[in-house]
């Protein structure tokens, strides 16, 4: 086994060895040397991912009390709970890079760290629980399956577990919509309406177009990302289009068409103005989502303090 410490090499040599490991598909582990920019990039991406899981609990959590039957209520509860669990693994993965969980959360509350913009759209009907599972979790899986092979070990391992649960979530979303589409006209209309509202925001989940993606090239070189935003977006459209046919729903894009030559679906340009506006905080629910998360943290302050104080008292009593 090769042993070397940082002091034996200059930065250039360390970076060279680091890139060699990446090229050989050797995972980077928490105690390994890594460039500062790699660490920062990962902290940004993983914490953003963790915040997305936690903020993502809100639009669906909003429907738990109104779920239409006991089975749906239980499944939705379990699903949203999985998302909280994903948030926990991801914050832990982030901590292995030296980030402080509470600090990253405060950064989100202050608008310095992002979360997935999709959760800034409102969940207004029960069919949205289906559309979120099918499209939003479906889009997330496209990203996350690729991340199971990401170069940073703890992130890759967290993603393997998360992916298993996400694919279950996607199936439950699709099943909600299948039930609606086999139901009454009113139910089918509810499903179509949800697709109309969630389709474009779901495509936006893959981020800016490659030409406008500031972190993409370096992330690909470091194998943090394996595919570009546009590649993943195309994969998603290719998977979702036939699924919409199975449901008997129409994707709200007149230009959506199979292209025999490309062996891919063609689709219209995303409304990038809307994308950037929502990202900047001007989406329909940005303020509500952040306010809800801030309130949870602030209202829980006394609870966390009590737990810490009690633990200290107990430790003192034990030593006394």
């Amino acid at each position: 086994m090769e042993t070397y410490t940082m002091s034996n090499f200059n930065n250039e040599e360390l970076e060279k060895r680091f890139q060699e490991k990446i090229d050989k598909e050797i995972k980077i582990e928490p105690n390994d040397w890594m460039p500062d920019a790699y660490r920062k990039n990962l902290i940004r991406q993983i914490s953003q991912h963790a915040h997305s899981e936690v903020v993502g609990m809100l639009p669906e959590g909003n429907w738990i009390t109104r779920a239409p039957n006991l089975r749906r209520k239980a499944v939705l509860l379990a699903k949203v709970q999985d998302e909280a669990g994903h948030g926990l693994y991801l914050y832990s993965a982030c901590e292995t890079l030296g980030a402080d969980r509470e600090q990253t959360i405060d950064d989100m509350h202050d608008g310095k760290a992002k979360y997935s913009s999709i959760f800034n759209y409102p969940a207004v009907t029960w069919a949205d629980m289906g559309a979120i599972g099918w499209l939003v979790d479906g889009a997330a899986i496209m990203n996350q399956v690729a991340l199971c092979r990401t170069s940073y070990g703890p992130y890759a391992r967290a993603m393997v577990k998360i992916c298993k649960e996400e694919s279950f979530h996607q199936r439950q979303g699709f099943e909600i919509l299948t039930t609606l589409c086999k139901g009454t006209e009113q139910q089918k209309a509810m499903a179509q309406d949800a697709l109309n509202r969630f389709w474009w925001p779901s495509l936006m989940m893959f981020g800016p177009s490659d030409s406008d993606s500031p972190h993409s090239a370096q992330s690909i070189k470091w194998k943090i990302k394996r595919f570009t935003n546009d590649e993943l977006r195309q994969q998603f459209v290719d998977a979702a289009a036939p699924q919409a046919d199975i449901l008997g729903l129409t994707i709200p894009d007149a230009n959506l068409k199979w292209n025999e030559a490309r062996q891919h679906y063609d689709f219209s340009e995303i409304n990038w103005d809307e994308f950037w506006q929502v990202l900047e905080g001007n989406g329909p629910c940005n303020k509500e989502r952040i306010a809800a998360r801030k309130a949870a943290k602030e209202n829980g302050q006394w609870v966390r303090e009590a737990a810490t104080t009690y633990a200290e008292k107990r430790a003192l009593r034990k030593t006394a």
């Binding site: 936690v54 609990m57 809100l58 959590g61 738990i64 009390t65 209520k73 509860l77 949203v80 709970q81 909280a84 948030g87 926990l88 914050y91 809800a292 309130a295 949870a296 209202n299 829980g300 302050q301 609870v303 966390r304």
Partner: peptide, 10 residues
């Protein structure tokens, strides 16, 4: 279930 997403810690 009303607590979902609003707990004092995750």
């Amino acid at each position: 279930s009303e607590w979902c997403g609003h707990g004092p810690i995750l």
